[in-house]
Computed example of a mutant assay.
Amino acid sequence: MSKQNSLLIVILTIGVFGILTTEMGVIGILPSIAEHFDISVAKAGLLVSLFALTVAISAPIMPILFSGINRKKIMLLVLGIFVLGNIVSIFASNFTVLLIARVIPAIFHPIYCSMALTVAATSVSKEEAPKAVSKVIMGVTAGMILGVPITNYIAGETSIEMAMLFFAIVNAIAFIATLIFIPSLPVKERLSYGTQISVLKKPIVWLAITTVIFIGSATSSINSFIAEYLGTVTNISGGTLTLALFLLGLASLFGNLVGGRLLTKNAMKTATLFPIILGIILLLSFLTGKSTGPMLITIMLWGILFAIGNNINQYWITSSAPEAPDFANGLFLSCGNLGITIGTAVGGLFISGMGTQYIVLGGLLFLLMSLVSILLRNYMYSPTTKQLAS
């Protein structure tokens, strides 16, 4: 990989990190936001669920609409919108303004992230493409997980406004780096809208969509309220809470590397075992939730599994539609964020109806459904089944 390509991928990773940190970083400060605007934690969760729902709706559409425009210009447009949205969030006078300032950038979120995955893959040789894509996915994972403790720490030491400023700064750094260091990226080959959308005729694509939504719902039903869970159930706060979230983030980065290697060795086995193993970890968190030491260990295991699930989701979608990578990456983002929306909503229902500790039950339910859809794909598209059908 040349130095220019390496720099390109680093900048893409920073950009993805900034965008995903903006989306998921607020998870660590939902209780503080609820207190600041005098609303419930469940209502504050709209900052996560509505953002994710917006991404889920726009992800299959926006990347296709902008697929023919110079990619550098589109990157600058999206990053600029995120910078402005975060600046407005800093000065939001009420919760509605804050919500609007997040939803508008969310519309453009999938354009950058889908494009980053495609550009990373096409900037290197075919053999090096998986390695390049995994680095960008690490930015996604870092933004979704590591951004949470960073935001929690900043808000705890200063204010939620300073946490919003952190979001703006990261996106501004990516904007400046893109402007200065990334060359013009005109689109050389453009697939027609019809060619890309036609992959939806394949049953395997719909099985992949179902699986990714279920896995996303399982992880998000807990992850979206992890700060609330650790504060209410484990009864930790301040520096200990920040440490727990930081351990979760570090574990997820490690899990990202593990996930890539496992998928390379045996993708089907990795996907099949994932919901079973994560289910065991969730049960473990239910049992150890009130003990700080054991829960910190459980948190690290959960972080590793979360990141592996993110890798599985991306592979599961793109492997079902390799002929349309841009659209497939858009579907990956759409389904993942739809899972976040559903999972956050269900987690909020469990908190309101049964108590924070029982959000684990929602995660287990979604994992069971994901296992069924994975086994169905494995059966329908196994070599043995194809041979019998022929």
Rank of each mutant, 00 (worst) to 15 (best):
S2R: 11
Q4P: 00
I9Q: 00
I9W: 00
V10Y: 13
V10S: 12
I11Y: 04
L12R: 02
I14N: 03
F17S: 05
L20N: 12
L20T: 14
E23I: 05
P31Y: 05
F37E: 13
D38Q: 15
S40M: 08
A42N: 14
V48F: 02
A52N: 03
A56M: 07
A56E: 15
A59F: 05
P60T: 07
P60D: 07
I64H: 04
L65K: 10
S67E: 14
I69Y: 11
N70G: 03
R71S: 12
I74V: 10
L76C: 07
G80I: 05
G80S: 02
V83Q: 15
N94F: 08
T96S: 15
L99V: 08
A101M: 06
H109N: 05
Y112K: 00
Y112H: 00
C113D: 08
V124N: 03
S125D: 11
K126W: 13
P130G: 03
A132S: 14
V133K: 01
V140E: 10
A155H: 05
G156V: 08
T158K: 09
M164W: 02
F166N: 04
F167P: 08
I173V: 07
T178N: 09
T178Q: 14
I182L: 13
T195K: 09
L200A: 08
K202E: 14
I204L: 12
V205E: 01
W206C: 01
A208Q: 02
T210I: 13
T210R: 02
T219G: 07
T219E: 13
S221C: 09
I222R: 00
Y229A: 01
Y229F: 09
T234P: 09
T234C: 06
N235S: 11
G239Y: 04
G239L: 09
G239T: 09
L241I: 04
L243W: 05
A244C: 03
A244E: 06
F246H: 02
F246G: 08
L248G: 00
L248H: 13
A251C: 12
A251F: 06
F254Q: 02
L257M: 13
L257A: 15
T264C: 03
M268C: 08
G279H: 04
I280L: 15
L282Q: 12
L283Q: 05
S285Q: 12
T288D: 07
P294I: 08
I297L: 13
T298W: 03
T298V: 15
I299T: 11
G309D: 13
A321W: 00
P322F: 07
E323K: 00
P325Q: 08
F327V: 10
N329I: 06
S334R: 00
G336V: 09
G336I: 10
N337I: 08
N337W: 14
L338C: 03
T341D: 05
G343Y: 14
I351Y: 04
Q357P: 01
Q357S: 13
G362L: 12
G363T: 10
L368G: 12
L368H: 03
S370E: 06
S373M: 05
S373A: 15
N378L: 10
S382A: 14
S382G: 10
P383D: 15
T384W: 15
K386G: 08
Q387M: 07
Q387H: 14
A389P: 02
S390T: 15
